[in-house]
Design a protein around this nucleic acid. Sequence first.
DNA 1: AATGAATATATGATTATTCGCATATTTAGC
DNA 2: GCTAAATATGCGAATAATCATATATTCATT
Lengths: 114, 114
Amino acid sequence: MLNPLLFYKALADDTRLKSLLLITEQQELCVCELMTALDQSQPKISRHLAQLRKANILQDRRSGQWVFYSLHPALPAWANQVLQQTLLANQSYLAPCRQQLTLVSGRPVEQACC
Amino acid sequence: MLNPLLFYKALADDTRLKSLLLITEQQELCVCELMTALDQSQPKISRHLAQLRKANILQDRRSGQWVFYSLHPALPAWANQVLQQTLLANQSYLAPCRQQLTLVSGRPVEQACC
DNA sequence: AATGAATATATGATTATTCGCATATTTAGC
DNA sequence: GCTAAATATGCGAATAATCATATATTCATT
């Protein structure tokens, strides 16, 4: 029960769109990982992630001092497909962020498939 | 070469999203058809369509006194798929508009497939 | 319990979008 | 050429979204 208008409003911001696409690709990311990937301030990242969480697009999971965000399991299939297609077809939009992305837990950075 | 952020900004407005989805479904629509379908003023519809045209998402074609808008032929495949999926998966969002839609040329109103 | 790192939120200022209204433009029919 | 219908645009007002800064919270470490 996610209204398409609310969904696209959530995507209509550079910080939120890049965060969402990176999370779609990497399964889950924490605030500080997105801070360095997008080179944005902590309150800015946190605020936008909170917005996506309130819209039921993301879920969060606390692990010690970190809070990891991932796609909400109840996200409609069509929304999921929209994110996947946008990710695959717009690698150049995301490339600079992925390059700056370093994961705090040491796990490897996922590469776009294909 | 349509930036995903610009594309989603274009979808992040009720008037524009409904117009785009209706056009995706009906192939092409003119301003006055969208006015009645969405129950909005002429300048409002016209202004939003102009915005979509400037973003290279729509193209326009004049036929007598009417200007018909359709999806731009150079619209990237991923954007096209996003529109199609959004349309198919959100019939209830569009239903009231489609119900009020009457075509000036007398051609039949397309129904959502499936 | 004190400190520091990571995250969240409150708030006022700034900026971007949208709107309504008035008016201009284009075309068809007379 | 005049009028009416359809469409487009200019402009200031209203609304919404975003931002930076400051501060609060939570947890691990000592």
